[in-house]
Design a protein around this nucleic acid. Structure first.
Lengths: 335, 335
DNA sequence: CTGTTAGCGCGTTCAC
DNA sequence: GTGAACGCGCTAACAG
């Protein structure tokens, strides 16, 4: 029995007589043989593994879902995923990419990449790179969600219920950054809100909007305290509002807290809609929100990467994921 | 220049003249050389990588935190982590372990293992195995949290506030299973509650307890709807209660929802305490709960595994993590 | 101090 | 149909 024959039965290729196959399979069972994938990788110069770099705002369920989607897509196609948490730091992100490159992964997906140079690093090394949520590098493929459409749907839902005086709480909107930068998600959500109101013949007044500044927390997301304090400000400066769109579930949760403290009933006195659909379902009242298909995003990103690996050519496609409005119990017609 | 010399400067070992070192480093920079870790692994017969198997109840933040803790511990020690989601299925868990074994990981950590045979598989292959949260295999090391102490603290917190009529909502308690089985976490929490009340001279009546049955969801956790319906039952069958301990944040969130619907104020009319500290902080009112150190559990599990790998001997230690009561706004003295 | 050598375990020629 | 031989890129042992 030669190793070549064994290799042939293991992979079902080449010619091998039924009898030999029989004998080899027998021997494999008895010897408790287990294929050594690292030798295989070395020889094939292909590792069937992908890097997943993300930024764990520890309190943010978003990344967890993406990771699970990624893991599932990879598993279904026989790939492995190497997990790195760069915690929003460009230096750590860089080190993660280097480590992945040393390990000869076939591709890396960035969930909310921090530095464009890091994704270019992967590209230059000749492997495929996919960006999730934030487009930093024009050469990489990406999976993004249409924040504008999502926020439009949220606002129009409120308008459809009869609301006109609708407030907004969200992340600070940086001035004039280009369309595909890091700020785009927050700006898109805000713009969609403003445009929708405008279309309804009720452009928002300045006092209806509270968006920053606030101290950015780990990972760059507004926390629940932020939401509460924004809501309080909004109540003071625009008491006539009948509904509020929040740029994230986290912010909405904070808003709900401050409203609860004040004894104001949701949705009876005020409607609230969130964004993300992370723990929206668990709040009291259950929060109407715009679902981001986080699992699907992770899934698609990995599938895209694998497609490029198997298929050869790497193009900079941008895959769009649709959001979905989930109506629960925090929205109702105005009082 | 021979490859051996290069290897020596790369790893700072062996003798090498300052001049040679200079020249090699120069050449490395210019050639854009990058170490091939897979060849290194093959040669060293050590991969510096660990498998992380977990069961993503997609809605459960618990596993995400564990994963982040694991990733950080691994990164700090120069290890990589291979990420698998077995989704509570023994067969998928088995396949994950096999894949990891083929890839010659140095160890695998199971977050809430499903099948004892699977962790034994790893052990038999001669690598270290660590179990988180659930002890299934006496031969493996484990990281567990003292659920009894945590639930005791929660209940005594309520007692200390002056409550006596304290209810309980939780997962169904299986009859007579042994101490280290899959059911132990839910049983410990319940027992602690009962014992604490007993010590306070107020043993709970049957009507104060609602624990199952309910349809188990993905991953085996009670969902928010479960919490709501349990709370409603509790309100009906034991209207005199002034406080409730919930076996998880999820259940507590459901309880809060049904209370909100009924218009009953928390904590003014009724106090609630949860368990886990996942999204407790985001609820309205912010939930008093028992924090499980999820991040630390992942961190410790990986550290344990690495310790065994470097240190040589593998003992079946059980590392205990302390819980911590986080008092927020859902508990107050009885009305 | 440095180079030569011999594998690690596999997949792929290329003869037989 | 099958086996012998080579090399993927690296490290460890030993000579020099």
């Amino acid at each position: 029995m030669s190793t070549a024959t064994v290799s042939r039965v293991l992979h079902n290729n080449g010619y091998v007589s039924a009898e030999s196959r029989q004998r080899v399979e027998e021997a494999l069972r008895e010897s408790g043989y287990r294929l050594n994938v690292v030798a295989q990788e070395l020889r094939r110069r292909k590792t069937m593994s992908l890097g997943l770099i993300l930024h764990g705002a520890m309190s943010n369920p978003f990344v967890a879902q993406v990771a699970f989607g990624a893991a599932q897509a990879a598993a279904e196609q026989g790939f492995n995923v190497l997990f790195f948490n760069a915690r929003g730091d460009a230096e750590r992100e860089h080190e993660s990419v280097e480590a992945l490159l040393r390990r000869r992964v076939d591709g890396v997906v960035f969930t909310t990449a921090v530095s464009r140079a890091n994704v270019e690093l992967a590209l230059e090394a000749g492997i495929t790179a996919v960006e999730i949520e934030r487009r930093l590098c024009p050469g990489a493929a990406s999976v993004v969600v249409d924040n504008y459409a999502g926020a439009t749907e949220a606002t129009e839902h409120l308008i459809g219920l009869g609301h006109r005086r609708i407030g907004y709480i969200g992340e600070p909107i940086a001035g004039t950054a280009p369309a595909d930068d890091a700020q785009s998600v927050v700006r898109e959500r805000f713009t969609a809100y403003r445009d929708a109101l405008q279309r309804a013949g009720q452009p928002p007044e300045d006092s209806w909007i509270v968006a920053g500044p606030y101290p950015r927390e780990q990972g760059g997301w507004g926390g629940v305290e932020t939401g509460a304090s924004y809501m309080e400000r909004l109540l003071r400066q625009a008491p006539g509002l009948t509904a509020v769109v929040a740029a994230s579930d986290m912010l909405a949760a904070g808003a709900l807290q401050s409203l609860y403290r004040e004894g104001r009933r949701v949705p009876d006195e005020l409607s609230i809609v969130g964004f993300d659909d992370t723990f929206a379902k668990h709040l009291a009242p259950a929060l109407t929100t715009v679902r981001q298909p986080m699992f699907e995003m992770g899934f698609k990103a990995i599938s895209l990467a694998i497609g490029f690996i198997d298929g050869g050519r790497h193009s900079a496609v941008a895959e769009h994921c649709a959001t979905e409005l989930i109506v629960r119990s925090s929205t109702a017609p105005p009082p």
